[in-house]
Simulated scan of single mutants.
Amino acid sequence: MSKTPDLPPDHISGIIEMALSDHASFADIQREYGVSDKHVKTLMRENLKAGSYKAWRKRLREFGDRRAVYK
């Protein structure tokens, strides 16, 4: 059972693409798809390989430390 809202596959693909981008914030994703940052993280965990998910989260933390507003 998925913990994220039921979304069409093209929305999931778009959310993942935006989340992987260093230029889109969680606020941008929420504005476009109506999905909270918590749900984006869950969706990424469900759709990426474990190593890719961990690398993505590490990159978010590193960027977040350098920028006042990120993801």
Rank of each mutant, 00 (worst) to 15 (best):
T42H: 11
E17I: 08
M18C: 01
E17V: 09
M18N: 04
D37H: 10
A19G: 02
F26H: 11
L7D: 08
T4E: 05
R61N: 12
H11K: 06
V40G: 04
E62L: 09
H39C: 13
A19I: 03
R45Q: 15
T4K: 01
R31F: 09
K41W: 05
G34F: 02
L60I: 12
K49T: 08
G34Q: 00
D37Q: 11
E46D: 11
Y70M: 10
R61D: 14
I12A: 01
A24G: 00
G14T: 01
R31K: 14
D6C: 08
F63L: 11
D28I: 08
Y33E: 04
T42A: 15
S52G: 15
L48E: 02
R67K: 12
D22H: 10
L60T: 05
A55L: 09
A50K: 10
I12F: 00
R67H: 13
G14W: 00
R59D: 09
G14K: 02
R61A: 14
R57A: 09
S2P: 12
V40E: 03
G14Q: 02
S21K: 04
L43K: 08
S52K: 12
L48G: 01
R31P: 00
D22A: 11
A19M: 05
G64V: 02
D22P: 05
S52L: 13
A68D: 10
D22E: 14
Q30K: 15
L48T: 05
K3Q: 13
Y53R: 05
G34V: 01
A27H: 03
H11Q: 07
L60E: 11
D10C: 06
K54L: 08
R67C: 10
V35C: 05
A55D: 09
V35S: 05
R31V: 08
R67E: 14
S36P: 03
G51K: 15
